[in-house]
Design a protein around this nucleic acid. Structure first.
Lengths: 167, 167
DNA sequence: GTTATTTTGTAGTTTTGAATAACAATTATA
DNA sequence: TATAATTGTTATTCAAAACTACAAAATAAC
């Protein structure tokens, strides 16, 4: 059912990722090049293109992958927790998780403590997909490390966390 | 976009910027924190929130600002050039520029050489808005510098350009 | 213990950004 | 000259995200 459209979407994403042309533009971007926001966005788009192409055959979007990772590490979280941790709106997380559940990768279990909320878990299939995704992810990170050079990742992560921090 | 809806959108953006809660989440994000893509996205969202709030009273989106900057630096560019330099699709740039033109900030002039294309210029009003935006922007960058610490900006820009570079 | 407030998940709508296809006019090339 | 490529454009689609409103359940206040 959704597998057809999912395949198409994955193909689209792959095409977009390989087609996007981020080479140094012929026109000088001038002052923009010194603006952190501009550089940040350009880098984020390039990295996400790589991630999306990387996960294309698993049909996993970055946001979906991050949910799997979180549930793999901390099973039993409730929707609000995961959504808040990832900076996703509660309402939008429902749709996102519905997709994972429909594909049999994760499930909602009702908890005895609180009858409003669900405890979220990966299924067997979800664990398997996560394992494969982690494999691909580590190769992706290795590619980035090659670009960043020795010590680059640590430097970059430290700087980015300073930017993301709320005063 | 009419000026009415623009005002509303600016207000929305401001509200969203101040309302978004990116504090260290209660739930441990674990392995995600070591992934460059995740850190990059979190930082980009935080910085863009600041930019959007920063430009709220000018009713300028980051993409619109970048067009003004480019035309301020290199007047007479054609649409394809600007779009390519900013990584925007030709088709989507039309709408973006329509907005600037309707607000009287920029204009299309036909060129004698090539009757297909337009040469793009800022208007007087556009120059003024750009000047005010640059003012705000430099304060924004100063805020980021305070977060990044001495030498942080140079390090960060160097690392980000490595990531954005097409092999 | 009842009332008020907060939390949680949900549905539906809207906005935004970006991708894509198709097209006409013009220019470049074979 | 015939063919191909470029430029701007319109319209459609899609995915992310934001917002509102709501019902059920838990918690706090009284």
């Amino acid at each position: 059912m959704s597998s057809n459209t999912d395949k198409r979407k994955a193909a689209q994403a792959l095409a977009a990722a390989t087609a996007r042309d981020v080479r140094t533009p012929a026109v000088e971007v001038g002052p923009l090049a010194n603006m952190v926001g501009y550089a940040l966005r350009r880098a984020q788009l390039a990295v996400f293109d790589d991630v999306i192409a990387n996960f294309a055959d698993l049909e996993l979007r970055p946001a979906q992958y991050s949910v799997l990772v979180l549930l793999g590490k901390s099973p039993g979280l409730k929707q609000s927790d995961v959504a808040a941790a990832l900076g996703i709106q509660r309402a939008n997380f429902v749709v996102l998780f519905d997709g994972l559940e429909r594909r049999g990768l994760a499930r909602r279990l009702s908890t005895p403590n609180d009858r409003r909320s669900y405890a979220l878990y990966l299924t067997e299939a979800g664990e398997k997909v996560l394992a494969r995704a982690n494999e691909l992810e580590s190769r992706h990170e290795a590619r980035l490390d090659a670009k960043l050079g020795p010590g680059g990742r640590e430097q970059l992560l430290a700087l980015l966390s300073k930017l993301a921090a709320r005063d």
